[in-house]
């Protein structure tokens, strides 16, 4: 269980979160939806430990994790393609693997590459890959640390339906053993991952849409 207790976050004078509390169940998939700029990415970054809340605490299975523990147990996949563009897929995997003490083995990497249909691209330089393939590599890098919590910020934005489906299948598979948190704006993704949906913000559009489709959600 990930527990947010009275979390407050301000950007200059703008309050993004004011004493917010939330409980996220272990394992399974949790989706965060809401309008742009409402603070979805900020929330994920705080859970990942990349940003610190101004006040409040975040507990993981009832305890606070040190930076080292977060590094070991949380995989974060940013919205941007955070890869070395001039290096090949294999070189990127080797680079980020080299920053970690414990990583998934090469067989598992090969499995993910195959599952995402990019095993042929291992020797290709990242800047020559399509946007979809770059996103898939971006995802695999996030899995290298063998995380128990996987956080993804709009992992399927701007890619074709086939690639999106492949990524969704991998995430589904991962959610059986790992807590997967992600943000999305895509309706098919919201319909596909209805385990736990957290609605952020006051915008009625998302609320109406969820209620129209009879999808249960938690309001933050």
């Amino acid at each position: 269980m990930i527990t947010l207790q009275n979390v407050t976050k301000h950007y200059r004078k703008k309050a993004v979160y004011e004493k917010c509390s939330l409980e996220i169940p272990t394992a399974g998939m949790t989706l965060f939806i809401g309008q742009n700029g409402i603070g979805k990415s900020t929330l994920l970054k705080m859970i990942a430990g990349i940003e610190k809340p101004d006040a409040g605490t975040i507990l993981y299975d009832g305890v606070q994790w040190s930076a080292n523990e977060r590094k070991k147990r949380i995989g974060y996949v940013p919205q941007e393609i955070a890869l070395w563009e001039h290096m090949t897929v294999d070189e990127n995997l080797a680079f980020f693997k080299g920053l970690l003490k414990e990583t998934i083995d090469d067989e598992l990497i090969a499995y993910y590459l195959k599952k995402l249909s990019i095993e042929q691209e291992r020797k290709t330089v990242v800047k020559k890959l399509s946007g979809g393939t770059q996103r898939k590599v971006n995802l695999i890098i996030g899995l290298l640390a063998k995380p128990t919590i996987l956080i993804l910020d709009e992992p399927t934005v701007g890619i074709d339906l086939k690639s999106r489906t492949e990524i969704q299948h991998v995430l589904h598979e991962l959610s059986a053993t790992c807590t997967v948190l992600l943000t999305t704006h895509l309706l098919d993704e919201i319909e596909a991952f209805t385990d736990n949906i957290v609605l952020i913000g006051e915008d009625t559009f998302y609320r109406d849409m969820l209620e129209e489709k009879n999808i249960a959600y938690t309001k933050l």
């Binding site: 990349i50 974060y76 940013p78 563009e85 001039h86 890098i141």
Partner: peptide, 17 residues
């Protein structure tokens, strides 16, 4: 220029603090 890739560098910080 190849070393100056903010997104990749930001990811390094996740692992290296």
């Amino acid at each position: 220029r190849a070393l100056c890739q903010p997104q990749a560098l930001a990811r390094v910080r996740i692992y290296e603090t």
